[in-house]
Design a protein around this nucleic acid. Structure first.
Lengths: 157, 157
DNA sequence: AAAATATCCATGTTATACCATATGTATAGG
DNA sequence: CCTATACATATGGTATAACATGGATATTTT
C-alpha cells in the first residue's frame, strides 16, 4: 500500500500529540525514515503531509534548476525551509509543532485526509466546507483525471 | 537521511560558536569530513552551507564550462576561493569566522534554514522577510517543481 | 608571552522513548 | 442472532536521554 486514502478523525492532546491513522503509517512503512514530513499549505488553512521519499524526489527534481539560481532559491526556501520531519513514537504518534497547529486552526480534533501521494491535516469543521467546495468545483468545471503523461511507464504497483 | 529540512534558531556566543542543529549534523554524518562547508551567498545577506561531497559535485558541474574560460574562473573563485571548512567540536558546534558573521549581519541568534541539498544561515529577523519574499515569487511567477529530469528513473519506493 | 584555537565538562531545558489504560471492531462461540 | 472475547488501534501519563548552551582548561600559533 503506497497511497493515502480516506479520511480519519483523531484526537490531539495538550502536548500536540496525535495518532497517525494506521493505514497512513502502513503507507510509509517501507521508508528508511520512520515518520512523515509536514508543511503548511499555501492554498488552504491546512497542513500537507508526505513521506520522506517524496521530499528526496522533490530535491532531485530541483536539480533541474541551476545551482544558486534565484528560482531554485525561492522554491527551496518555500518547500524545504518550512517543512518539518516528525518521527512516530512507539505507538505511531507524532507531535505537531505549535506554529503548525496555529496555521491550520486545529482544536482538539484533527482530520487526516488521504490524497493519494500526499495527505492533508484539517480542522474537521473547516474540512467539511472544503470538501463540498472541491466537489462543487469538479462538478462545475467538469474536471477529469488526465490521461497518462508520455514518459510515464504507468506502474500499477 | 541526507536532506536539510526545516528551520532552527540557535544562539551564537561571543566567540562565534554556534550549535549546528542535530538533524543537520545527521545529514552530513555519512561524510568523511566531520563538519560543513560555508561560503557567502551572492544573492542575499546570508551564508550558504553544504557538505563536502556537494562541493565535489559542484566541481564536477563546473566542468561544463571550458577549462580556462573566464566564466569558470569567476565561479570557481567566488565559490571555492571563498569557501571555508568548519569542523564540528565534540558537541556539534562550529566557529563562524568574523567576516562571515559580518556578511550575514548576525547578532546573538542565527537561523539555520534547510534547503534540501544545502542550507542557509540567516539573521532570524532578516530571514522572515526573505521567506515571505520567496513565497511571493513562487506565487507570482507560478514557479513549480519541474517534472522528472530526463535521466531520472524516478523510483518511488 | 599573548592570542587564537581546540577540547573538555557541567547544567537546564526539551523532546521522545517507554509503559499503562481505554475504546472500538472483528471474530468466534453459545 | 446475540453475546463474549480477543485483537488492534487510539489515548493519557511518566521517566529517560538527547540537545543546546555556558563556562573552564589545554594546546597551538604568531
Amino acid at each position: 500500500m503506497a497511497l493515502f486514502l480516506s479520511t480519519f478523525i483523531n484526537r490531539i492532546d495538550k502536548k500536540g500529540r496525535v495518532s497517525v491513522p494506521a493505514s497512513f503509517r502502513a503507507s510509509v512503512s517501507a521508508q528508511a525514515f520512520n515518520g512523515v514530513v509536514l508543511f503548511r499549505s499555501h492554498a488552504h488553512a491546512c497542513l500537507e503531509g508526505v513521506d520522506y521519499a517524496t521530499m528526496e524526489e522533490l530535491s532531485g527534481r530541483l536539480d533541474a534548476y541551476d545551482f544558486l539560481s534565484s528560482d531554485q532559491d525561492d522554491l527551496a526556501t518555500s518547500i524545504f525551509g518550512e517543512a518539518v520531519q516528525l518521527t512516530f513514537d512507539g505507538d505511531g504518534r507524532i507531535v505537531l509543532p505549535a506554529d503548525l497547529i496555529a496555521h491550520a486552526g486545529l482544536g482538539d480534533q484533527v482530520a487526516f485526509v488521504g490524497m493519494g501521494r500526499k495527505f492533508q491535516i484539517w480542522n474537521p469543521d473547516h474540512y467539511k466546507a472544503r470538501r463540498d467546495e472541491a466537489r462543487q468545483h469538479v462538478f462545475e468545471k467538469g474536471l477529469t483525471v488526465p490521461r497518462r503523461p508520455d514518459g510515464d511507464k504507468g506502474g500499477r504497483d
